[in-house]
Design a protein around this nucleic acid. Structure first.
Lengths: 162, 162
DNA sequence: AGGTAATTGTTATATTATTACATCAGAACT
DNA sequence: AGTTCTGATGTAATAATATAACAATTACCT
């Protein structure tokens, strides 16, 4: 493990490694199934995102990618991010201009994001009650949903009880 | 009415004028009550935002403000926006990097935003069921909420039935 | 191998936002 | 009236985020 130096709430490096490699192999299979290409660059960017449980900024990713891809430029990163978002492999966190790995790639992709102001980790939750209330509300308004960004900022349970 | 040239769904210019002036006078009273200063610049920026029912971008506001304030610079706009957001007089739409007038200044400020991809108008809704589901979900997660951004993109009823 | 579409390289630039420091205007005090 | 304090604004520079346009390369299909 190289750049994974942030503190996080996960009990051990080992667990986090497992969690990253699970995410990566899932991503790989999904791309295979879908007949889309998880190229080296895309894989590297996805890995860099997963190595943090925090949301990561595009230019931060660029800095981390450069040792692996000397030619990397902003477009390199943004293209990889576009692809990963399209495939539902990461979330864009609108209120942070940042990106976070998505645990739910094959299921329903749009989830509630709980974003901790202290540890900066992002917890994604399917929150079915919220989603169905949202559907009801939209239906009442006659609004046809294309996409959702539901981002809650606050303090997570780990930081509160510390 | 000067720069209000966009099409919108509101039945007449007159109604929209009323709706703008109501928002402005409400804003004025709120600032008085709170002992904060709705200065000329702040008032002008708020007016410019209200003259559109669409979310407006910061540099667009800057362009529209300059005829009124020759010295206006980015900082001028961003400072006014910061103030208006703090006072709950506008919303920042995170997923658009844009700003929209807030109809609910004295009530609960954080609302659901329904953002139409076609007409670009933003509808704010208190959506109590969504909010309470959100509270439940946060409670379950042990998460303490500071702020919320709930932004739904899609097609509004007016654009759908046209 | 040749043709095609997708991906990446490369440069430039657009868009969004902040920082830092100077100046100014008004309220509160003496 | 002058002094001081505070908040607001002026001003310049720059940081941070994102896209566009076009060339070169690679992957895939037959």
């Amino acid at each position: 493990m190289t750049s994974q130096t942030e503190l996080n709430h996960y009990s051990s490096e080992h667990n986090h490694n497992q969690c990253v490699s699970l995410a990566l192999s899932t991503a790989q299979s999904l791309c295979n199934e879908r007949g889309v290409l998880l190229t080296t660059i895309r894989y590297q960017v996805l890995t860099l995102i997963w190595e943090s449980h925090k949301a990561v900024k595009a230019y931060e990713l660029l800095d981390r990618l450069r040792p692996l891809q000397a030619a990397a430029k902003p477009a390199t990163i943004y293209r990889a991010l576009d692809f990963l978002i399209e495939q539902g492999l990461i979330h864009r966190v609108e209120s942070l201009n940042a990106f976070v790995g998505c645990r739910c790639s094959d299921q329903q992709h749009e989830q509630l994001l709980l974003i901790c102001k202290l540890c900066e980790q992002v917890d994604e939750r399917p929150a079915p009650e919220v989603m169905s209330a949202l559907l009801d509300e939209s239906k009442q308004a006659g609004f046809m949903i294309h996409s959702k960004a539901i981002e809650i900022h606050g303090i997570c349970i780990h930081c509160r009880t510390k």
